[in-house]
Structure formats: C-alpha cells, structure tokens
Write a protein that binds this DNA or RNA. Structure first.
Lengths: 244, 244, 244, 244
DNA sequence: GATGAATGAGGGTTCATTCAT
DNA sequence: TATGAATGAACCCTCATTCAT
C-alpha cells in the first residue's frame, strides 16, 4: 500500500517536471508564445504609439486571444514595457564591442561612429524611440529607464574608451564626460533630430554616414588629439605610402 | 446701428460662403476666441499628450463650449496641429536674431549657442517636442512640418551666418551644411536626448549650458577657424590685457 | 458702449436662469431623464440582481445611451444605491402614519399590522430586499443603510406608539424594544422568510394577512395588555352589542 | 491487483454509460474529490457571493484543476447548488433533535428556541442564506428548494411537537401551523432581519438570545398554554422551592 | 453662432468554459 | 482521467463628435 502511494507520488512528480521540461509550458511561460505576442505588440505599438494601439489590434496582429495576452502580461503597460525592454536590448546589443579592441584610434572611432549612427537612425530604432518618447507622459520613468539602460550605458563605454586613450597619451581631455557626448553628437550631426521628427522619412545612406562620421572624428581629434597621436598617424601614413 | 449689424451679418455670410467654397466647414472668425481655445488646448495637450487629453478637458480649460471648438477646428487633430503650429512660432521666434549682428565671432557663437541650448531644453519646449513626436505616428507629416518650419529654418540661419563668416575669411568650411549641424549638436552635447527621454527631469542650469557651449565653440573654431580669426583673437586678448 | 455691455450681461444672466428654469436641464439634472434611468435600472436590477445586471441591459431598458447614464450616475454601484434609496423611500413612505392617530388600541395595531405585513411581503418589496441582500457582500454598509433608514425607523415608530400606550395605562411592557420586534414578527409570522427565499412565489392574500395579524395582535395584547385595556374593550363590546 | 483495477475500470465505465444514459455528462465518481471541490467552493462562494466568486478562486482553494471541477459539476451554477444543498444539510442537521424527547414543555421550548435562534443567526449560516437569497433571482427554485428542505422541515417538526403537546392537554391552539410560525418568529424577534441586512455585523450574544427566547416562550405559553400546563408549572415551582 | 446633453463605438480587462496534452 | 493554457464574449466605462435648443 505504502509502495503504491510512493510510486504514485513519484510518477506525479515526474509528470510535473515533464510539464516544465518538455510538455505544455506553464501559463505565461511559453517563450514561443511570448515572442509571438511581443512581435504582434511591436508591430502595433511601433506603428500607432502606445495610446492609439488597442489590445484588439495586438490580439489580431499577434494571432493569440485577448485572454492569452493577459496571462503573459498583466496589462497594456506591462506588455509595452516588456516590448521596449526587449527592443532596447536588441538595439544596443553588440553596439559597443568595437571599442573593446583598441588598435588604431582614428580607425576605431570611425568604425564605432558609423555603427552608432547607423543603428540609432535606422527606421526601426527611430520608431521605437518615438514610441518611448510618446509614452513617457503616461508611463513616467519609462523614458528615463530606456535612456539609462541604453544610451547611458553606451555613453559610459565611450568614456571608458576615451580614458584608455588618454592613458595611452593619445588624447588630452579635461571633461571626458562632455567629450563623450560631443563625440556621439558629432557622429549623429543633425540626423537624430531629423529622423525623430520624421523630417527624414528614410534612414541616412551609408555614404552620408561615412561623410558625417569622418568629419566628426576629424574635428574630435583636432580638438582632443595629442602630439603623440599626430606623430603616430604620420608614421602610419608613411608606412602606407611606402607600401605603394 | 441696425445697419452696422446688418452689414456685419452680410460680411459674415460672405465669409461663410467663402469657407464653403474653399471646401472647409464654416470656421469661427473671432481671433480672440480662437486664441482662447488654443491657450486652453496648449495647457491640456502639453500636460497630458495628444491621446490622453480629452476635448472636455480643453473645453473646461479654454472656457468655451464643445460646439464652439468644433466651429473653429474640424476635430481634435486639427486643433492639435494648429496648437503645434503656434507653439512652433513662439519657440523659434527671435531665437536667431543674435546671428544678424555679427561683431565678435566667438562671442556671437557662444551667445547664440546658449540661447539655442536653453530654449530647446527648456521644460516647456521639451514637452511640446515630446508631444509632437508622440503624435507624429498618428498625424503624418506633423513632425516633419514642425521640424521644417522650426529647427530647419534655424539651421538655414546658422548656415547663412557661417557663410558670412567664411566670406569674411574667419572660417574655412568645406561642407557648411554639415558644419551647421555640428555646431548645433556641440551646443546641445547630449542634453537633447537626455531631456527628451526624461532622463533629465529638469532643464539644465545656466552653468551647465555655459560650460557645454564654450567647449563646443572652442572645438568648432579649432576645427573651422582660420589663421585670420586666430590673429584677431590674439589682438583682442592683448587689447583686453592692456585695459587692466 | 457701457450700456451695451450691461445689456448683454443682463441678457446672458437671464438666459442662464432660463436654462435652469425651463430650457434644457443641466447635465445630470433632468429629473425626468433621471427617473427614466432609475426606472430602467429598477427593472433590470430587481430582476437579475446587482452583479448579473449589465449596464447594457439598463441602457436598453431605460431607453437612454450608456453615456447618459454615466452623466447621471458615476458608476454602476452609485446607480444601484440611488435606486435602492428611492425604493426604500417608496416602501416605507406613509407606512407608519396609522400609528399617529391612536384611537382604539387593538384596532390601530391590527390596521397597522396589516399594512406592514402587506407592504413588506409585496412582490416588489420582496424583490427589492432580495436585491439589497444579494448586493451587500459587494457593497458593504448598503444593507445596513437600507435597514437603518427603513425597518429600523419603523421599529422606532412602533416603540413610540407602544410607549404612548404604556403611558395611557393600556400596556405594561418591560422591554419595549423587544416587544416592538415581537409585534412586527407576529404580524409577519413566517411570511418574510417564505417570501424572501421565494418559497412563496406570490404575495400572501388579504385573508391570510388578516388571519395572521389578528392572531398576532391577540397574542401581543394577551401578553402585554393591562386590566384597563381589558375593561375598555369590554365596554366597547357592550356598546356594540347595544347597537344591534 | 491488476484485476482489481480492471474491475474498477469496468465499473467506472458502466457508471459513465449510466451517466450518459440519464442524459448527464459523465460525472466524477470519487466522493473524496467531490468533497474537496465543495469545500473549496464553500469558502469562496460564502465569502464572495455567487457572481464575485471565480472558478479560478475555487480551483485554487480546492486544490484541483479546472477540468476536474467540470467533470464533477456541469457548470458554476450546479456546483453552487450542490454546495448549498450540502450546506443546508449541515445547518439543519440535529437542530430539531431536542423536540423529540418531550419532558418539561417550557424548558424544551426554551432550549429549542435558543438552538434555533443561535444557528440561524450565526455568521456562517447568515452568509449562506444571503448567498442563496442573492443567487435566487438567477437560479430559480434554488431559494424555494433551500427553504423547503431546511426551514420548512423544521417548521413541520415544530408543528408535530405542538400537536403532541396539544394531545397531552398542555396547549390549546386553533391554527397550529400559524402557531408554529409565531413561535419561531418570537424566538428570532428581529434578529433575522437585522443579521440578513448586515445591520448587525456580529451574531447576537448568548445573553441576548436567552432574553429574547425566554420572553418569546412566555408570550407563546401565555397565549396558548392550558390551565393544565399552568398547574403543572405551579407544582414544579413548589417542588423546586421545597428543594431549597 | 454658441451651447452642452446625448450618443454609441470602442477602450482595457475578466473569467466561465473548452480541449489538446 | 486529469490538467490548465487558451479562448472570446461580455463586462464596465470613456470620450470624440453631433445636433436640438
């Protein structure tokens, strides 16, 4: 008798674990469904903005029922925040990898500036940022949270990079914080505002960004580069010319 | 007296017909009432954003009836657009006066940079911009129109100014368009994004702006200033030192 | 000019007063519409109970739009409470008038007992009480408030009446409060519970009530009547017999 | 072991077929699980009322799955009815035992009156009755069924008891049915209505009930007691006094 | 022309019930 | 058989717009 009970209990336990492992996922736990919802929500929120997006729209777009959405997300705001959080992750993921391996300073700044400028002004990212900005009246801190975990972290990475270059005697900067902002802005030169206000309806081209970033890096290094940097660059130039 | 009234009525009738002829619903003609409505709408829209603002709120705030609003504006969106148009006018009014009288170049750039930075990051203007950005998905072209008639015109003014300085031999710039953007961005260095995402909840202080703008102008002139400018500045310096 | 303004103001004032007096009533102020809504609500709430009644049902039944209901009543609960309040007023209105003129004691008790029993067990009043009881889980104090302003006040009136009879030497009662309850219960003898549980689906007949109330008053006076009362009743009996 | 299981399955199959034959969905057969569900349902329904109780709440409280509940009960209403049926059984179980052994009449009436009054006004029973009353608009006959199998049966028992006392020459009653109601009502004197409307938020105390019941029995016996009863009580009194 | 009471579609959210697992 | 994730109709309530006054 006791054994029977034990067996039954054991089996039940295994069934439970099974459920968690490979059977039907628990309510609100299925990552596939979650993605499905977020994907639908993305399309609707990004297109219409937070307020104008209706849960019915999302329901339709995501291909799940209203009730299911509310199993995965407590309400519209939480769904939106989850979406934005995910979006932020996607946007800023790997954006700053370039800064980790520091070979040629100018080269690195140009490469990074291009990635930064391209990403931030890409249609999708602009839309996401617009949506966040538009919702930040209704969901306070959402904008701040987005900025803090996105642009702010990037800014910190840029500062780290500049500090390393200063240490190496390549740059001379009084206010590194400000310099990091200046660098970023020079790489975006006007693009962000043009895009965010939908004055530009299309993302800038590769060439545009090339031109802007190169000019920005020039200015930046003219302002903050040391004699040592100049000398190194002269050596490089000579080396390159020698090759030809 | 009676005749005057009749005349007035006749004129009004003609206005009405005019309105109908041009395919628009007969709009209210009283500019005072129009202002009254826009003022109420401003308080509500700016505070709550487009969607969250209710026509009832505006009615209450403006002190006019629902019907009256609909005589002056076809719907909520048109009222909002009219408001933004007016707001844009107010924001950018006089912002670029400084650039008209060109005495000392660095001085002028610093003064203008400060005004620009201060205005664009002021609480009210940030709110207005947020509202425009948030609504721009729902009301296409609104953001573009705002940018075009606001920041874009400012940008043109800056270009004019730079061209004048180039003419005077003070600056040497290949891409004046880009340089104008760079100048603006250097003056805002990070502030706009911080404010628009509500990461900064308060407008920057005078000192912050001073610091940023001075640094920005330094960089800008180091990049684009000619030898002639440098010389003039040396002379000035000597003149000032002589005074003491 | 000043006169014109004054005239205009005077006229406007009169217009306002007009509006209040005979023009269109202010929002949520039209007693006719209010009645219309309450009447619709009564039918629905009484039939279905608070929770099962939907605002759409009420909308349909009242013949007004959803929005209008919400102009007159802040929400479903307030509408329900207003209805119950009105119902309570109607039910207990004039119920206790009989007790004011105290001629013959037994006669008065019988007459009052009949009215009380009839009203409280009438189909409409039973329905209302059921609805109140059913809603009292969700709207705390509603039942208590109903009881306090309805049955409780009646109870106080009965106590007053009994005290007056005691003063006149007709009754001798230690615990008047208890006696008042006993009187009421004797007049209802089982009817209330039968009706409230819908065991009885129809209100009791006149004859039933007659029988119950007479028996109840008999018992009550046998328990609390004084020798003086008995003597008076003997005299009356003789007078009546003499008439024949 | 295997055989037992097979037998059990066979029986179950037959039960299922039975269930299908009688036009009901195959109901669960395990009385333990059934109890478990009803116990959970009781806690939820009694606390929240029919409408406000959610099947999820019951699921949680009962510790069984949604599907299982729907195997044992066709829907929410049937579950509720089953619960009420059980509750009724519990409430009125043993309530009338006292009336079976008839020693001293007054004593018996007082004892029974107290039990009756106490049970019917106890917090739990009042809640149950409120829930029944509240749901009886939505589930027709439920209130009637509750009353018929609960209070009504009690009423019949009281009538039996009174008839026995009449037979013994202790009481003289024309309308025993009415008298039985009168007795019950005198024992409750106001308490039921006070409790059911939640005017009283706590059950009456022992002392209150004592006082009410004693007074009620006094009145009842003054109205219906015979000379024989009076004489017996005089003897008893003397006997008691002699003891001292 | 001005008013604001009335409208009703549509908002976000809940939950009894079903059915694939 | 038992489970509980998914469903979607229906809930209460809001608000841009209309139109009788």
């Amino acid at each position: 008798m006791v054994e029977t009970v034990n067996n039954a209990e054991t089996e039940q336990c295994e069934d439970l674990l099974d459920g968690l492992r490979r059977g039907r996922p628990a309510a609100g736990q299925d990552p596939v469904k979650r993605s499905q919802i977020i994907d639908g929500a993305r399309r609707v929120f990004i297109e219409k903005g937070f307020e104008a997006a209706s849960m019915n729209d999302i329901t339709r777009e995501a291909g799940v029922s209203k009730g299911t959405i509310y199993v995965y997300f407590a309400n519209k705001e939480e769904l939106f925040e989850a979406l934005i959080e995910e979006e932020r992750g996607t946007i800023f993921k790997n954006m700053y990898d370039m800064l980790d391996r520091a070979d040629d300073l100018r080269q690195t700044l140009v490469k990074f500036g291009k990635v930064l400028s391209m990403k931030i002004t890409s249609a999708r990212v602009i839309q996401a940022q617009r949506t966040v900005i538009g919702a930040s009246d209704r969901i306070p801190d959402m904008g701040a949270r987005f900025y803090e975990r996105g642009p702010k972290r990037g800014h910190d990475k840029v500062m780290e990079f500049l500090n390393a270059a200063i240490e190496r005697g390549m740059l001379k900067i009084d206010d590194v914080d400000l310099a990091a902002y200046q660098f970023t802005e020079l790489c975006l030169a006007g693009l962000f505002r043009q895009c965010i206000f939908a004055y530009r309806t299309k993302a800038p081209t590769q060439d545009e960004i090339d031109h802007i970033v190169r000019s920005g890096v020039d200015i930046f290094l003219k302002a903050y580069g040391t004699e040592k940097l100049a000398e190194e660059e002269r050596h490089q130039m000579i080396a390159i010319e020698a090759k030809h």
